[in-house]
Design a protein around this nucleic acid. Sequence first.
DNA 1: CTGAAAGCGCTTACAG
DNA 2: CTGAAAGCGCTTACAG
Lengths: 339, 339
Amino acid sequence: MSKITMQEIARLAGVSLATVSRSLKNPNLVTPKTRLQVLRMMEENNYVYNAAAGDLSRRKSSVIGVTIPTTRNPIFASSTLAIQELAQEKGFSIILGNTKYDNAIEQQILQNFQERRVAGVILTGFTLHQEAFIKNLIRAGIPCLVIWEKLNGTPLSSVGFDNFKAAYAMTEYLISLRHRRIGLIIGPFSKVGRVKKRFDGYRSALEDHNIDYDSDLVIENEPVLYDGKEAMTRLMSLPHRPTAIFAASDMLAIGALSAAWELGLKVPQDVSIAGFDDIDFAAFCYPPLTTVRVPSYEIGRLAAKYLIEAIEQGSMRARHYCLETDLIIRSSCCEFSGE
Amino acid sequence: MSKITMQEIARLAGVSLATVSRSLKNPNLVTPKTRLQVLRMMEENNYVYNAAAGDLSRRKSSVIGVTIPTTRNPIFASSTLAIQELAQEKGFSIILGNTKYDNAIEQQILQNFQERRVAGVILTGFTLHQEAFIKNLIRAGIPCLVIWEKLNGTPLSSVGFDNFKAAYAMTEYLISLRHRRIGLIIGPFSKVGRVKKRFDGYRSALEDHNIDYDSDLVIENEPVLYDGKEAMTRLMSLPHRPTAIFAASDMLAIGALSAAWELGLKVPQDVSIAGFDDIDFAAFCYPPLTTVRVPSYEIGRLAAKYLIEAIEQGSMRARHYCLETDLIIRSSCCEFSGE
DNA sequence: CTGAAAGCGCTTACAG
DNA sequence: CTGAAAGCGCTTACAG
């Protein structure tokens, strides 16, 4: 722990503390000869810069806070990865918090971010009713960016995509395949805006095609494999079972797939299953999953880029970026050939 | 950014700076009345504690650095999650670094951790030849813990499991199923110790059962789905193809599974496939994957616990914890019925 | 190009 | 129980 400080390097190199600092951080303000001397001293004594002290003194921070719902769903992994990569390039460190879709935890994490004096924060969605607290951050002058949502009209910047449109498109695709009873297995839409929009998209598509909404056909749960399987099992035991399932998260879809196999149902012949996210596994399950591709990595990359720009400019005006999603047609859905 | 400081709260509350600090961090050193007064002032002015300044002043840190190979492989997600959960409980923040199995990146991350003056670091494995640098950390008095490896005899503490033994057991299981030509698809064993041990386990099991090692049957690659698929395709096109595949990572195994389907091969009737890790997906693929269960969450939990203990005691003597792995027999392997 | 000095926002002996 | 003061390890105007 007893690390050597700039002060000591200064003494050893026979220069002032200021010169040592400059040799490291503003090399051009110092004679090459002096600098080399200082650097050599650092080398010899295993000097390690203290970023925390530097941040404090400069009164600016070089850490970015990012929240994700859970590291357990791999779909967030690629946006997180992208953020980390870019941040690292630009000299920022990342601190991460898992909200578990829980309001209280999320708030605690955000509090912690503030205490750490993060330079900015990226929120991977956020719990409904959290806006007040988040606006707090903004009022405190901390650049904030929400990802995975499209938030036009809010003071909160966002880089995301149109969850409504994407879910609408998938539902419509299923309808075009002549399905009329379409089950929906979906994450915590009563808690998370982004998920709510997927629900709305499903419902609107139904409505626009004159299909009655049937609440028995929709199951809300956590977006994990097990819950998908369980939901599928329930839906398939309905007296008048759905012919297609839209699982609004690939985790759920893959869980559903496994339930189908276990029930002896062939996908897509006996029942079609569509997902949402296009996680890596989607292309590798059996049958390969028809899903909507979310540009997760690009979202992370862009978010980090814009956030860092805002940090460097010292301000962020609300901006909204909406990326495109794609329908990825693989083999888990087919035309309904029944009555 | 212009946050209010303790100094200002002191002025507003009519007390000294010291009292403000104590009201927050050592409530028992201050009259309830005074404390309440101070706390109210903080409330009214949206005071937010500055953890970075606190750390600097106290000359101890409350952040823990953790490296993982890649956030892309979900198997590391659960140990990371466990670490985060416990750390959060104990008032630590986590900074994360993705090494991508790259020596240089890993080194840069470790450097960054030092600059941030982390209180301790947890390494999810490490690249071979990195030991020197890591010992540096230890010499600097930073508690370090390696997870996913078992490192008896090193000055580096570890909580992991026996990669050799686990791989040996799975290989032996396959042999007990009368397989003699067992392919191995495996991660970067020439770079990562833990993976090397799996390789050794495979090879030893073969040897102990008088089966010749055939290097044509082993393929080294990145532990990602695509590579598993590609490797499987290659192995299946061999003139004398293996009857069973041991994929020493579930990602690889699931990739292999998908290749099998695409080639029209039934698993396990035509070819058995076994994995390693027991990621969530393993139980949900088709057929459910026979694999070795790694206690990922428990590893993370224990590692965080021991690291924090070491941090609090101010020292860490090398300790080694070795958890058990289990063979999880599902349906992707069966007895070989050929010649 | 270099140095002396003030300051970042806290904590903690030391006195009282 | 409370306060004045020194200090954590840097950065950065300000002078020279």
